[in-house]
Deep mutational scan, measured.
Amino acid sequence: MASQGTKRSYEQMETDGERQNATEIRASVGKMIDGIGRFYIQMCTELKLSDYEGRLIQNSLTIERMVLSAFDERRNKYLEEHPSAGKDPKKTGGPIYKRVDRKWMRELVLYDKEEIRRIWRQANNGDDATAGLTHMMIWHSNLNDTTYQRTRALVRTGMDPRMCSLMQGSTLPRRSGAAGAAVKGVGTMVMELIRMIKRGINDRNFWRGENGRKTRSAYERMCNILKGKFQTAAQRAMMDQVRESRNPGNAEIEDLIFLARSALILRGSVAHKSCLPACVYGPAVASGYDFEKEGYSLVGIDPFKLLQNSQVYSLIRPNENPAHKSQLVWMACNSAAFEDLRVLSFIRGTKVSPRGKLSTRGVQIASNENMDAMESSTLELRSRYWAIRTRSGGNTNQQRASAGQISVQPAFSVQRNLPFDKPTIMAAFTGNTEGRTSDMRAEIIRMMEGAKPEEMSFQGRGVFELSDERAANPIVPSFDMSNEGSYFFGDNAEEYDN
C-alpha cells in the first residue's frame, strides 16, 4: 500500500510504541512475548500442572481467558453494579484439565481477579502490559475465525453469508486497541457500523446529549479505520460520505453494504499476525530463551520457528480426527482463516481442507461434555516452508469459486491468482447506482469489472525454506488448481455463540 510509510507498523501498534527502528520493534515485541511466557509459567505453578498438562491447549485457553477477564475493567465495573446470582464479580476462573488415573478430569478453578492481575503485572515488570493482553485477544479471535462461520451475524446486519472472507476479527472485544483495529476485516468494521446506525434509528437519543457526542466521535473513528483499509480513492470518498452524514440511517447502511461487497474484489488491507497460545510461549521462556534479547516478529519467520520446536497437546472428542484438529489450530496460529487453501497447503506441506470436510468441533470443551471418553493427542503445528504475512489485500483475480465463501483475504505475501467468483459478486451490483453516491458507485463498479483474471497478485513473492531466515531465496510455489480455494466452501461450520 502506498501510504505504508505514514502508518505505524503493526509491531508498533502491538507494543504501543512511538516510531521505533526494526531492532527496537523486535525487542519490544519480544518483551511482550516474554511477559506472556513468564505469566503462563507462574500460572502453571499456581495450578500445580504437570509439564504435559501445561502444554494442553484447553488449559492455555482457560488461563488466557482468566487474565483477560481480570483486566476487563468495563465488564468488571458492570458486574459490580449489576450483581447477578451466583456470579462473584471479583473472581474469575474456568475449567482446568488434569490427568488422573490414566483419565482426563475437569476441575473448575476460581481465583481472585486481583490475584491474577498481581501475577500478570509481576510477570511483566510491574506494568499492565496491555500489548500482551491484546495479543491474547487476537489469538482467540484468530481461533474463532478458523472455527466458526459468522453466517447468522452477517444475515442479521443485512449482509450476504458468502462475504465471510471479510469477517476477520469479528469476535475481537471493543477494547483491543490499535492492534485489534489493524486485524479487523472490512466486513467486521461494516458490521460494527451498521449495528451502531441501527441503534440510532431505533433509539432517538442515541446521537443526542453528552453521551451522543461520545457516540458520534466513536462512529467517526470507526469510519476512519474502515476508510484506511480501502485502497481505492472511490471507496475512500464513499467512506467520507458515510462519516460526514448528519443523521446516519438506511442510506448509510446501503452504502456500507455496497462497500463491503466491493471489497470482495477491490480488497481492503487487513493486517495478519501470528499470535500463538500462551502454552507455546511459556515452555520456550522456561527453556531459557530470551525473546527480548533475541527479538521477535509476528509477521516473519519467528512464529514458524517457534511452532517448529513446540509440543502442544489437545483434548480430542471420541469421533474427532486429531489431524483435522491440528489443521484448525495451525490455521489459527498463522492467522489464515480466509487465505486461499492452495497457498496454505503449499506452505504447510500437507493438504489443507475446507472447514466442512474437517471432523472436528471447536477447541474448547463445553462444561456439560462427558470427560470419560476424552483422549488427548499432539497437535501437528509444523510447516514445510515459511512466508511473510501481508497486510495488503493483493490485486484481484477471477477463479472458480464456491457456493460458500466467494473470495479470499490473503494472509501471506505469496504470488498467486486470487480466487473470487466474479459473476456471483457482480450480480449483486445491478441497477442500484442512484442517489448521492452514484458517481462513486459507478466508478467502483467500473474498477471491479476491469479486474483481470490473468493478473498475478504479489508478483514474484515466494515462500522460503525454514533454514532461509533472511528470506534470501524465494520459492514461487505451484498450486494444484483442481483443489478448492475457499475454506468455508459450501460450508456447515458451527455458528459462533458468545
Rank of each mutant, 00 (worst) to 15 (best):
D290V: 07
R19A: 05
P453K: 12
R26I: 04
G349H: 14
G37Y: 04
A271Y: 10
I425M: 06
A179F: 10
S353T: 12
M167P: 02
R117A: 05
A401Y: 04
P474R: 15
R102E: 03
K422W: 00
A70Q: 05
S84K: 00
R267L: 06
P419D: 00
S245R: 03
R150I: 03
L61F: 09
D302N: 15
N498V: 08
S486H: 02
P89E: 02
L61M: 05
G86H: 15
I444A: 10
L256T: 13
R74F: 07
N21L: 14
L266N: 01
T378P: 10
C279N: 13
L56N: 15
V414I: 12
T130I: 01
L47P: 14
P89A: 15
L379F: 11
Q241N: 07
I33T: 13
A182F: 09
R461L: 05
K90S: 12
R74Y: 04
A403W: 00
M105G: 03
G349P: 12
Y78W: 10
E114W: 15
A428R: 07
L56D: 03
I63C: 14
T378N: 03
S413D: 00
I475N: 01
K422Q: 12
R461Q: 13
D480Y: 14
Q42V: 06
L307K: 06
G86R: 13
G268T: 14
A387P: 05
R221W: 10
N334I: 08
I257P: 01
Q364D: 00
T171R: 04
S3Y: 15
S217W: 09
A85E: 05
K48I: 11
Q241L: 07
K229L: 05
S478W: 11
M43P: 02
G404K: 09
G158D: 02
D145I: 08
F346H: 06
I201Q: 05
S457A: 10
A234S: 14
E107G: 03
P318S: 15
A337I: 03
G177N: 02
R8T: 02
I25M: 15
K357V: 05
V352C: 07
V329K: 01
S326M: 10
S392P: 05
R461C: 04
Q311F: 02
G177T: 04
S335P: 03
G177C: 07
S482G: 00
A131S: 14
L315S: 04
A131I: 02
L49A: 14
C333D: 00
G362V: 01
Y40C: 01
Q409E: 02
